[in-house]
Design a protein around this nucleic acid. Structure first.
Lengths: 187, 187
DNA sequence: GTCTATAGAAGGATAGAC
DNA sequence: GTCTATCCTTCTATAGAC
């Protein structure tokens, strides 16, 4: 009964795929499963995403947009570089504590497809490189050196790889590490 | 060539499977591929490992034995708790710098099979829990508190999740964090 | 002949793609 | 829906060592 191309179809499919891919992993989820959750036909899925790799790439690009938006939101009220840096770490800490969190989508994909060099892998690697660059930039602007940037990147990686219970420890630690920061930790 | 049951068959199969599983991921490797690399028939594979899950569990148990052996070797010459702790971190740092390193086998499996609770997942989780407990114990024996243990565990997770280039930074940092340790860092 | 191991086909389910 | 390919698993058939 539907003649009009249904404007939000692509988003509907992508949202369904993103939820499944993130929760169960890209390899574990089949296209039929995506179709079932999205509630559309297979032909429509392949019309918008000609292959699973392209769907996975779109999923990671969506994940990136959400991350960028969340980080931008967190940095909105921060003025000085030091505050911006600690706000970034706090945002990551909040992220890993969210219910349903199952690790970093980009790191997860690279783990699921090691050595691959397709488009989703490039999206994931680009995100990680950009994030690392942003940490470097914020640390430099905060008056920190390369060593501090390396250490904070180590904490960020630990944050993504470890249990959510360590989020607060990471945030407090970074606040302690960054120079000229007003100490606010309770203990 | 075959009437005698061929003594080293199980190890041959397991070694082949372990190499494939670690390099490409468990999901990406098929049983036929294991058979091909091991150079045996499918019957023999299923005789020793009745299912892929059991083969994966054996792979992780082998990985654990190798890790335990490597850690025990690294701690062999260390006497005091502080030295043992730094030696443990150094061993992990060396591990992530080895050629062909593709991440922690246990974390990789849990990423490939999120939410699963089969035997390989239990082996992986047990390993991570035991490692965490060992860090806690070494830190406590070194005179450190719970916060220091949390921080070092954060570094360990970052070490496993990040690029190998950060290995040295992690080692130096831990040496700096642990109390009553002779500072030896150059910068 | 007996036993084991290999190679390959078969079964049944599911994958991605049309 | 259908097609093809591949997944894990099982089974059959053949070859070789005792």
């Amino acid at each position: 009964m539907a003649r009009t191309p249904a404007p939000g179809t692509r988003d509907t499919i992508l949202t369904a795929a993103a939820g499944l891919f993130y929760e169960h992993g890209v390899r574990a989820v089949g296209m039929a499963q995506v179709v079932e959750v999205a509630g559309c036909g297979k032909n429509l899925l392949y019309k918008h995403f000609p292959s699973k790799a392209e769907l996975a790439a779109a999923y990671l690009e969506l994940a990136r947009r959400e991350r960028d938006r969340s980080v931008a939101e967190a940095l909105r009220w921060s003025g000085e570089p030091v505050e911006r840096l600690t706000a970034l770490i706090s945002e990551i800490a909040e992220t890993v504590q969210r219910p349903g969190y199952r690790g970093c989508a980009f790191r997860n994909y690279l783990t699921e497809f090691p050595g691959e060099d397709d488009e989703p892998a490039r999206v994931a690697k680009t995100y990680l490189g950009d994030t690392r660059a942003e940490v470097d930039r914020l640390v430099a602007e905060s008056g920190g050196d390369g060593l501090l940037a390396d250490r904070i990147w180590l904490i960020v990686n630990g944050l993504y790889g470890g249990p959510p219970s360590q989020a607060r420890i990471a945030v407090d630690w970074v606040a302690e590490l960054v120079p000229s920061c007003r100490g606010d930790k309770t203990s």
